[in-house]
């Protein structure tokens, strides 16, 4: 029986249309097609970080999470798969993308499958995805597909890019349909570090049977 998957595209592209968004959309399209061949459906939501730029900056300097940002966090919370796409500036991912992911709770994206994508004006930036972005997504305990996507100006005329998009999309579909996230979250959610109210405000379980809770109720430090 087919399942419905929620795919979230996070784009740090700034122009409209942007090649960064275009790259992500190509992935999303292939993910939908490949999932469809397996009788699954995919609903895609796009988070344009450009529209969140002010709230991202506010959150960084004042811990205040604005309504658009809260909405984006709730969207990611529900995601079965994520495509994160960014332009490369000065040999690194756009600060808009890294800032956004730095604001998120550490446990928001645990075990979620991710495709990473970057665009640049020169092929010299080709290793930004593998050398820099993977570390951030590893910290967030996401599972990033083996194929990284990178498109410099000349790649748009090269069929090799399409092949890599197909590869990455298939890898994402394989991870989404495997139930990896569900298994990890169902069976070992409690073994990751959480704070009260983390995971985008959803982590609200209170374990009364802990050393600290016993200490709170007058007991010894244990």
């Amino acid at each position: 029986m087919g399942q419905n998957f929620q795919l979230v595209v996070v784009s740090a592209g700034t122009s409209d249309p942007s090649s960064t968004r275009l790259l992500a959309d190509r992935v999303a399209g292939r993910v939908t097609t490949l999932a469809g061949k397996r009788a699954h459906t995919v609903g895609t939501t796009v988070v344009e970080l450009r529209e969140l730029a002010t709230e991202i900056a506010n959150a960084l300097v004042s811990n205040h999470i604005g309504p658009k940002l809260r909405n984006a966090i709730a969207t990611l919370q529900r995601a079965d798969g994520i495509v994160a796409s960014t332009p490369v500036y000065k040999a690194g991912a756009s600060g808009l993308l890294t800032s956004f992911f730095q604001i998120l709770d550490n446990d928001l994206l645990i075990a979620k499958p991710v495709v990473l994508a970057a665009t640049a004006g020169t092929a010299r930036h080709a290793l930004v995805v593998d050398d820099q972005m993977r570390g951030l997504f590893a910290y967030l305990r996401t599972v990033v597909v083996p194929t990284s996507l990178f498109a410099s100006t000349e790649d748009w005329q090269d069929n090799g890019l399409n092949k890599r998009i197909d590869r990455a999309a298939l890898e994402l579909v394989a991870l989404m349909t495997s139930g990896f996230e569900k298994t990890v979250r169902d069976e070992s959610w409690g073994s990751y570090q959480h704070e009260y109210g983390s995971a985008g405000g959803t982590e609200l379980t209170i374990d009364l049977d802990s050393d600290l809770m016993r200490l709170a109720a007058g007991g010894g430090a244990g």
Binding site: E195, Y196, G197, I206, L208, L212, M213, L215, A216, A217, G218
Partner: peptide, 13 residues
């Protein structure tokens, strides 16, 4: 504002 152990201690006493 986000530490259940502190709320628990307040309640306990």
């Amino acid at each position: 504002i986000r530490t259940p152990e502190i709320a628990e201690q307040a309640a306990f006493y």
